[in-house]
C-alpha cells in the first residue's frame, strides 16, 4: 500500500496536522508562504511513500500559479476578477488538498477507527465515517459495470454524451448507483454487526499506533509553520 520509503504516523497526528495546515493557510501572508507549505506537503508525501501523487499535485500547483502570475501582467477587464478568485481558491486549497489526499491514501479504515476510539469519539461519528471511507473507493468498481451497461443501451458514458443528453446520462449514473448503494449499505451493516462492531470495549488495531519520534517531529514542524504564518501576517 505504501512505498519503500515510508514513515508511519499515528492517525491522530495526521488529523491534527491537517487541522493545523488549514489554520496556517487561513493566516498565511501570501503566495510564497503557501508555496512553501505546498513544498513541505510534498516532502511529507515523499516520506509517507506517496512520491508520485505529491510530485504530480505540486506540478499542477506550479503550473496554475505560473498562469496566475502571467495573467496578472495583462489586463483582462471583467475577466480578471473571475480568474483571480479561481486562482486564489487553487492557491489556498491545494496545500491542504494534497495533505488530505496523502493522509487518506496512507491510513487504513481500522487505524482511523481505533484512533477515534482512543480519542473517545462516539461511535455515531466513527461508524458512518468508516463506512464512507470504505464505500467511496467501491464506487469506482461500480462505475466500470455501469459504463458497460450504458454503452450497451446506446448511451454514451463520456463527456460528449453528457453534453448531448445531460439528463439521460445523469439518470444512467445515479439510478444504478443508488440501487447498489442501498443494497451495499444494508449488507455491509449486517456484516459489521455480525462481527461485533457494536462491542462497547475500546477498539484496538492490528497495526501499532503510538505517538513516536516521527510524530513529535511532524508536530514541531506543524507548530512552527502555524507560528510563522501568524507572525509574518502580523509583520505584513
Amino acid at each position: 500500500m505504501s512505498g519503500p520509503l515510508s514513515v508511519r504516523l499515528d492517525p491522530r497526528t495526521k488529523l491534527a496536522l491537517l487541522f493545523v495546515w488549514a489554520l496556517a493557510v487561513l493566516f498565511s501572508p501570501g503566495l510564497p508562504f503557501e508555496a512553501g507549505m505546498m513544498a513541505l506537503a510534498v516532502v511529507f508525501g515523499a516520506l509517507c511513500g506517496k512520491m508520485r501523487l505529491s510530485i504530480a499535485m505540486f506540478a499542477l500547483y506550479c503550473a496554475a500559479m505560473g498562469i496566475a502570475i502571467a495573467l496578472a501582467q495583462v489586463n483582462l477587464g471583467i475577466f480578471s476578477t473571475l480568474f483571480n478568485s479561481f486562482f486564489l481558491l487553487v492557491r489556498k486549497v491545494f496545500p491542504c488538498g494534497l495533505l488530505a489526499a496523502i493522509i487518506v491514501s496512507t491510513t487504513q479504515v481500522n487505524e482511523f477507527m481505533s484512533a477515534f476510539s482512543k480519542m473517545r469519539c462516539p461511535r455515531e461519528v466513527t461508524i458512518p465515517f468508516a463506512v464512507m471511507m470504505r464505500y467511496v473507493p467501491a464506487i469506482r468498481e461500480d462505475w466500470g459495470y455501469i459504463k458497460d451497461a450504458m454503452r450497451m443501451r446506446g448511451v454514451s458514458p463520456t463527456l460528449g454524451g453528457f453534453l448531448r443528453r445531460p439528463g439521460l446520462t445523469v439518470e444512467c449514473l445515479y439510478v444504478p448507483l443508488m440501487m447498489s448503494a442501498l443494497n451495499v449499505a444494508d449488507e455491509l451493516s449486517c456484516a459489521s454487526v455480525a462481527r461485533g462492531i457494536e462491542n462497547p470495549a475500546p477498539r484496538t488495531c492490528h497495526l501499532h499506533i503510538e505517538f513516536g519520534i516521527a510524530d513529535a517531529a511532524v508536530a514541531v514542524v506543524a507548530a512552527a509553520v502555524l507560528a510563522a504564518a501568524i507572525v509574518l501576517r502580523g509583520l505584513a
Binding site: 487504513q108 455491509l188 456484516a191 484496538t204
Partner: peptide
C-alpha cells in the same frame, strides 16, 4: 458487501479489534 476494510489483513483483524484484543 461484507468487507469493512479496504485491506485484506485489516479485514481479518476486524472481529478481534472489535473485542479489544491486544495488537
Amino acid at each position: 458487501t461484507q468487507f469493512f476494510n479496504v485491506d485484506s489483513t485489516g479485514e481479518m483483524a476486524f472481529a478481534l479489534e472489535s473485542r479489544s484484543t491486544p495488537e
